[in-house]
Simulated scan of single mutants.
Amino acid sequence: MIENYAGAFPLWLAPTQAVVATITSDADGYAEEVLAKFRAAGLRTEIDLRNEKINYKIREHSVAKVPAIAVVGRKEAEEGKVAIRRFGSQAQTIVTVEEAIAMLTDEALAPDLKRIRDGQA
């Protein structure tokens, strides 16, 4: 499996499915809330509250091949949103926390379980 995916596991197989990373320390409290919601939804999630530049954090988690990085800052905290960055992509999608959870939990479901859920077993 490791050789097949070259370490870049799909979200359903990755040991860490998402990382919540802050832009500034102002968003630390909101990041903790997002982390709690992600974990409550069953996502294997970590948090990065270090006092580092966001580009450094993103690069570091990309090197670790984390499938999704949820970036939060002051603006996202005010709006109740997260910016989702996918491994291997420069683009980011800004969505509500609930939309992010729905998107990621669907992707986190293993293919065989999706077939059962969809009645194709």
Rank of each mutant, 00 (worst) to 15 (best):
residue 115 R to Q: 14
residue 11 L to K: 13
residue 73 G to V: 03
residue 52 E to W: 05
residue 46 E to A: 14
residue 80 G to P: 10
residue 22 T to C: 15
residue 107 E to T: 01
residue 84 I to A: 10
residue 11 L to P: 06
residue 116 I to W: 08
residue 3 E to Y: 02
residue 12 W to T: 10
residue 114 K to E: 07
residue 119 G to Y: 06
residue 79 E to N: 11
residue 116 I to M: 08
residue 66 V to T: 10
residue 57 K to F: 07
residue 61 H to I: 00
residue 29 G to H: 03
residue 23 I to R: 11
residue 64 A to N: 13
residue 48 D to M: 10
residue 27 A to Y: 03
residue 71 V to M: 14
residue 121 A to Y: 00
residue 97 V to Q: 14
residue 121 A to D: 04
residue 46 E to I: 12
residue 109 L to C: 14
residue 118 D to S: 08
residue 15 P to E: 05
residue 100 A to Q: 12
residue 50 R to Q: 14
residue 85 R to Y: 07
residue 3 E to V: 00
residue 89 S to A: 04
residue 46 E to Q: 11
residue 58 I to T: 11
residue 116 I to A: 14
residue 15 P to M: 01
residue 107 E to S: 02
residue 52 E to H: 03
residue 37 K to V: 09
residue 14 A to V: 01
residue 1 M to K: 08
residue 42 G to L: 03
residue 86 R to W: 08
residue 53 K to D: 13
residue 76 E to K: 00
residue 35 L to V: 03
residue 55 N to Q: 14
residue 17 Q to M: 11
residue 31 A to H: 10
residue 78 E to A: 12
residue 74 R to S: 11
residue 102 A to N: 13
residue 8 A to Q: 14
residue 43 L to Y: 05
residue 114 K to Y: 09
residue 14 A to C: 01
residue 88 G to D: 00
residue 100 A to G: 11
residue 50 R to P: 13
residue 1 M to H: 07
residue 20 V to E: 09
residue 62 S to F: 06
residue 22 T to M: 13
residue 84 I to F: 10
residue 112 D to T: 09
residue 83 A to N: 08
residue 3 E to A: 05
residue 110 A to N: 01
residue 90 Q to K: 01
residue 109 L to F: 03
residue 114 K to R: 15
residue 96 T to W: 04
residue 15 P to Q: 03
residue 52 E to I: 01
residue 45 T to A: 15
residue 118 D to I: 01
residue 40 A to V: 02
residue 111 P to L: 09
residue 12 W to N: 12
residue 8 A to G: 13
residue 118 D to Q: 06
residue 67 P to W: 01
residue 74 R to M: 06
residue 85 R to P: 15
residue 68 A to N: 02
residue 3 E to L: 03
residue 36 A to E: 11
residue 80 G to S: 07
residue 80 G to I: 05
residue 19 V to D: 09
residue 111 P to Y: 04
residue 43 L to R: 02
residue 72 V to Q: 12
